[in-house]
């Protein structure tokens, strides 16, 4: 369910043009988050956003496609939420009493390996585009705490009133027991 097949889209000028647009969005978003412009980041999210991060389980080979990740809509995951919840997370930081982010962590998002998986109605004039990337997020907190979050992301962007907005984000964090005490960073 969660491992999307390698991109089958033809590599042509339309593909690379659209990929560049997607990359620009993703890099802008990373920059916005790393600059702690949380309200501006929320502006980049569609009102219909789904933000999902499953748990990862050790299962038998052959079962992994079906059972490695917890299921959206059925199981307990790390995140299965919408824009309302993410807005609450931002509001929480703004209270200045969110001790897990007060003082703010230093966070650095690195996004790479961007590939387009699908575009609708087509690559040349896309209104909706799904891409996959790798992320490496570094969090440094208080004095010496540091955490690395590494994994894959599948993002769907939708054009709303001429601007790309994030419609769906699936975050595949490559950890079983979470090695961080908290998931306060936005992915």
């Amino acid at each position: 369910m969660n491992e999307i097949k390698p991109s089958k889209l033809e590599r042509n000028i339309d593909y690379f043009t659209l990929r560049q647009e997607v990359e620009e969005f993703l890099y802008d978003e990373a920059e916005t988050l790393d600059q702690r412009e949380f309200s501006a980041w929320l502006e980049m999210l569609s009102e219909d956003l789904t933000y999902f991060m499953p748990l990862r389980r050790n299962v038998k080979y052959g079962d992994h496609a079906e059972r490695e990740n917890t299921r959206e809509g059925e199981d307990i995951s790390w995140f299965e939420e919408d824009k309302w919840t993410l807005s609450k997370r931002v509001d929480q930081i703004f209270t200045e009493k969110h001790w897990a982010e007060e003082p703010l962590s230093r966070v650095c998002h690195m996004i790479s390996n961007v590939q387009l998986l699908s575009a609708a109605p087509n690559v040349a004039s896309a209104e909706e585009v799904t891409s996959k990337c790798r992320f490496l997020i570094y969090q440094n907190r208080v004095e010496t705490e540091s955490y690395f979050f590494v994994g894959k992301r599948t993002d769907t962007l939708r054009k709303e009133a001429g601007d790309w907005k994030l419609l769906r984000r699936e975050i595949i964090l490559d950890q079983n027991v979470l090695l961080a005490k908290n998931l306060t960073v936005f992915f």
Binding site: G73, I76, S77, W78, K88, W99, A100, K181, N182, T184
Partner: peptide, 28 residues
């Protein structure tokens, strides 16, 4: 079940808005 699941996830654990602040205090 769906509403509870979503509430549990935003409340509890390392991604939970409530328990994150516990974790910070337990740590230090």
């Amino acid at each position: 079940k769906d509403m509870l699941r979503r509430y549990y996830m935003r409340y509890s654990g390392p991604a939970g808005m409530t328990e994150q602040d516990d974790m910070e205090n337990w740590n230090y």
